[in-house]
Design a protein around this nucleic acid. Structure first.
Length: 977
DNA sequence: ACAGAAGCTTA
DNA sequence: GTAAGCTTCTGTT
């Protein structure tokens, strides 16, 4: 140890008692072992290590040790037999925890010190002296006044529970004397807890005043006769011997023959797996999670250590009173066979949680409505204590970019939840908008009180569909971290399982609880009132229920993640995407109103012209948009050939059918198809998009759903920006309205043939892998292999058919579907497929394997381990079964591609920041990412984007086929793509 | 006012 | 043949 080093000495014994008394009584592990004090101790240690390391201004320890009392008998008992004689035996449920706390210290990789015949305080005093002599500083982690005598220029104290530093000035402030006079002060006052006699009638105030007057105890006793007050003078003279023995008792020994050197206390980084093994054994789930996060450990992969608590009468003297707990962590079996034999497997624990959740009924009338700041502060303190809190925001709109905050709810334990109304209005929603309901905390005050909790790295926030709440909160300047999302947990666990991942459904499924329907509190349709108009009592039941249910769902779902081996899918592909998408949604994209308006006019004109032609041809003014009326005219009255019926018995008027008729030379069907295209473009795009331009940002903010598809793809809505036209020239014009900000460019980067590349890799097809490695035209190569024709000079029709087959494979091909796609007889399509499988037998094997796996397990997996369930794959209905087989084949490919672009998106922001680029990701369209970049940075941005995307599978998966990304920049989306 | 069907847009 | 979302029409609530 040298100058500049900093030693932390933790008064472990002091903490055992403080933690025990500070925490709710009788906190027990599932097997009944009491662990309240262990929990408090571990949380304190972890917080101390984290904060001490993290704070810039704080003190960073270089050396660290935790010190315990060895037994209750020390040299002081020889000096004064009554010392600590009135101490009662420790509470029954604290006894087994002494050993566990020492074990906890070792699990934290920290030295654990004790010495026979001495108190912890003496060891602390001795090490303080040694550190001081070595030139280092010391912080004593304790708030015990017995240790204050050690405070000096290089020695401070710290009370982590009150987050308070104690220095020389603090000692003077509290006791009225400087630290070096604390011994004399204690000698005078004594200590009833430790049975140190002191001088009767002298308390801290008098003692301080006397010491101020006489200097020190010796001088005081010598000149006691000078004291004016009769009683005080006599007491001091009569009890001088008690004061002297007291001084001996309270003076800490700095000469303990310690065996460990200061250099043995050098602080090492936490050993994640070791610590997590212990924490799991103690069932400290929230601390386990925090430690896993901070140490970068996959907690799911670590099993609980075997921590055996045995009562043994060893030579190791009693800690306090009776009973000794020798405790061992068996390193050899730490990976868990013992745990399994006891039945405490992740699956077992998950099942237990699920059982308990259904049994614990929900009472929506038990919630609290928080209407003042002090009460909110109590709830926030409770959340801090719990380490986890479920929350939910209530607003006036489903669109988080437009929503106004009405209030938020918190849940700190099942059944313990509150609603905090902020923006509820009274009276009619007239021009004045109604006044705020009385007794609501001002939004600014509530949020500035809530913000530190939401951003506290040691408190896990839980939400259902967090992205919504995150966007709302971020708009109010509040971030949320760390977090879990119950919707995403359900999605990772149960994608494809019937029922979806909405809260109402999940509450019924897992908790057996029917949630209050939103329309019951806010009405619907014409009777709809915004949430801000809902009376506070109703709002409280509804909103707090959401938080309560969310917390309970988390308790059920989170353990299932580890039980099913899906922790890394959740933590790497799902959870990190939430803030990425929240940011994209908030950025939005610029859309040119004028371009859309002009297009809308053109389309209206074109459609009107066609309408007139159509009316002329059929002789009456029907509603062309009505397939029913149209079918009746075309196939009924006009008697066109080739009519077919839909499953509801209506005449089909599908585009495919009308196209076929047009090809036979009929004029009318062609015009109808054209009319439909124009009206479709007008209504869905040019007319609807301007309505999505945000009044303040002037941009269009789509909403991405993370848990809407079964395969892992995202979906986009309000508006859907993943189906903006591109195939026809007319449609493409709509893309020209998506523009870059002034001085910026849009960059579009898309994966080339990503699903076929994934297929080539997972099905291991040599010809396809070679073609991709060569950068060849994959459809031409396929055609060449199948039809034995050279790539050079290949007719475009041959390539087109091969292309259709390649896509068909991705979709789980059927002769029926391929025949439809290529407008060829089913037999011919079947022959193509046969030919394809002969040339690429690996693909047939791959498809057969996938079907067999899905049938066996009820799900398929992507390359990254995402599971997609097909509960109907064993259906006795052949067409249902075939559909599920095709879907499962497609899901592995589509899902793997979706996972890859997710990984790219998660890394993109960091990569751009690292490269010092200001480009920002705006949109995702399944295999394409759209960015906005300052004009001058475009050239530098494209390679960064390309690198991130092309390497997105790494290092988790090394594909045998290269990924290729095409990227381009332009002023609008049409030209960039 | 709502739900489902039909139809059309995307990857 | 896979995966989505939006608009319109139509019949029911």
């Amino acid at each position: 140890m040298k100058k500049g080093d900093h030693l932390f000495l933790v008064d472990g014994s002091g903490y055992i008692f403080r933690a025990y008394h500070a925490l709710p009584p009788l906190t027990r592990k599932s097997d009944g072992l009491p662990i309240g004090a262990v929990s408090g101790f571990c949380n304190m240690l972890w917080k101390l290590l984290r904060e001490a390391r993290n704070t810039d201004a704080g003190i960073t320890p270089t050396h660290f040790a935790v010190i315990f009392d060895y037994s209750s008998k020390t040299f002081r008992n020889d000096l004064y037999p009554e010392y600590k004689a009135n101490r009662s035996a420790p509470p029954e449920d604290l006894i087994p925890q002494f050993g566990l706390i020492r074990e906890a210290t070792r699990a934290f990789n920290l030295p654990c010190l004790e010495m026979e015949g001495f108190e912890a305080d003496d060891l602390i005093a001795t090490y303080c002296r040694l550190a001081c002599e070595a030139g280092g500083d010391t912080t004593i982690v304790s708030s015990d006044k017995d240790l204050m005598q050690l405070v000096g220029p290089t020695v401070g104290m710290y009370d982590p529970m009150r987050d308070r530093q104690i220095g020389i000035l603090d000692v003077i402030e509290k006791w009225g004397v400087p630290p070096e006079k604390m011994i004399d002060l204690q000698a005078l006052t004594g200590d009833s807890v430790d049975n140190v006699p002191g001088i009767p009638g002298i308390g801290p105030k008098t003692a301080a005043q006397l010491l101020e007057q006489f200097g020190d105890l010796d001088a005081l006793l010598e000149r006691a006769s000078e004291i004016k007050q009769n009683k005080r003078r006599e007491s001091i003279i009569d009890n001088a011997d008690k004061a002297l023995i007291s001084r001996q008792l309270v003076t800490l020994r700095t000469d303990v023959p310690v065996t460990e050197a200061l250099d043995d206390f050098v602080l090492h980084p936490a050993d994640g797996p070791k610590l997590i093994g212990f924490l799991k054994a103690m069932e400290f789930s929230s601390l386990t999670r925090r430690v896993a996060e901070a140490t970068g450990t996959e907690a799911g992969e670590i099993e609980a250590a075997t921590v055996a608590v045995e009562r043994a009468d060893t030579a190791h003297g009693p800690d306090v009173g009776s009973g000794v707990q020798a405790l061992e962590v068996d390193e050899k079996t730490a990976t868990g066979t013992a745990a399994k034999e006891e039945g405490f497997t992740p699956s077992f624990l998950a099942a237990k949680r699920a059982e308990a959740a259904v049994a614990d009924k929900i009472d929506v009338d038990a919630y609290h409505c928080v209407r003042d700041l002090p009460t909110l502060e109590v709830w926030i303190a409770e959340a801090r204590e719990a380490g986890v809190v479920a929350f939910d925001v209530e607003t006036t709109s489903l669109d988080p970019m437009q929503a106004e905050l009405c209030g938020f709810s918190l849940a700190t334990a099942p059944g313990r939840a509150c609603y905090v109304p902020l923006g509820h209005k009274s009276g009619q929603d007239d021009l004045l908008g109604g006044g705020l309901v009385d007794g609501q905390i001002p939004i600014r005050d509530a949020l500035s009180t809530l913000k530190p909790l939401m951003e506290d790295s040691s408190v896990l926030k839980i939400a259902q569909n967090l992205k919504y709440d995150l966007v709302v909160m971020q708009r109010h300047g509040v971030d949320v971290t760390p977090y879990d999302d119950t919707m995403l947990l359900s999605y990772v666990l149960d994608a494809g399982v019937t029922g979806g991942h909405g809260m109402d459904f999940l509450a019924d499924k897992w908790l057996g609880h029917k949630t209050i329907p939103f329309k019951d509190v806010a009405g619907s349709g014409k009777s709809f009132i915004g949430f801000h108009q809902v009376p506070l009592d109703k709002a409280t039941c509804y909103a707090a229920e959401d938080a309560d249910v969310t917390l309970r769902l988390w308790q059920v779902l989170k353990p299932r993640l580890a039980a099913k081996g899906l922790v890394s899918v959740y933590e790497r592909l799902e959870r990190p995407l939430v803030p990425v998408l929240a940011a994209m949604e908030q950025r939005g994209i610029s859309v040119d109103r004028q371009i859309l308006s002009r297009l809308s006019g053109d389309l209206a004109q074109g459609a009107a012209r066609l309408e007139e032609d159509i009316y002329a041809l059929i002789g009456e003014r029907i509603n062309i948009g009505s397939p029913r009326q149209l079918g009746d005219i075309l196939f009924g009255r006009m008697g066109l050939p080739g009519g077919s019926k839909t499953k509801t018995g209506q005449w089909s008027t599908s585009a495919q059918l009308l196209e076929d008729l047009a090809a036979e030379g009929h004029e009318l069907p062609r015009k109808i198809v054209d009319w439909r295209q124009l009206t479709k473009l007008k209504s869905t795009y040019t007319d609807a998009l301007p309505g999505f331009i945000h009044p303040e940002t002037g941009r269009v903010h789509t909403s991405y759903a993370l848990a809407a598809t079964t395969t892992g793809r995202l979906s986009s809505s309000d508006p859907n920006l993943q189906n903006i036209p591109i195939r026809t020239a007319e449609g493409r014009k709509i893309r020209t309205a998506f523009i870059a900000e002034k001085g910026h460019k849009l960059i579009s980067a898309d994966y080339s043939q990503i699903e076929l590349r994934v297929l080539a890799d997972v099905a291991d097809i040599p010809q396809l892998k070679q073609a991709f490695a060569d950068g060849a035209d994959i459809h031409a190569i396929t055609a060449s292999e199948m039809f034995n024709v050279p790539v050079e000079g290949m007719p475009s029709e041959v390539r087109r058919r091969a292309k259709a087959i390649n896509f068909g494979i991705i979709y789980g091909i059927s002769a029926f579907g391929l025949a439809n796609q290529l407008s060829i007889p089913r037999e011919e399509a079947g022959a193509y497929i046969k030919q394809y499988f002969e040339r690429f037998p690996g693909i047939r094997d791959y498809m057969d394997e996938t079907k067999a796996f899905a049938r066996e397990n009820g799900y398929v997996e992507t390359v990254f381990g995402r599971r997609i369930h097909y509960p109907e794959i064993r259906s006795s209905n052949p067409s249902v079964r075939a559909f599920n087989e095709r879907a499962s084949i497609n899901a592995r490919l589509q899902g793997t591609a979706a996972d890859i672009i997710r990984r790219a998106m998660i890394r993109m922001e960091g990569a751009l920041a690292e490269a010092g680029l200001s480009a920002r990701m705006l949109l995702q369209v399944h295999d394409e990412l759209i960015f906005e970049s300052v004009e001058g940075e475009v050239e530098a941005t494209i390679p960064v984007v390309r690198t991130v995307m092309e390497n997105a599978a790494m290092p988790a998966v090394s594909l045998s086929v290269p990924l290729q990304v095409d990227a381009r920049a332009a002023d609008n989306w049409d030209e960039a793509h």
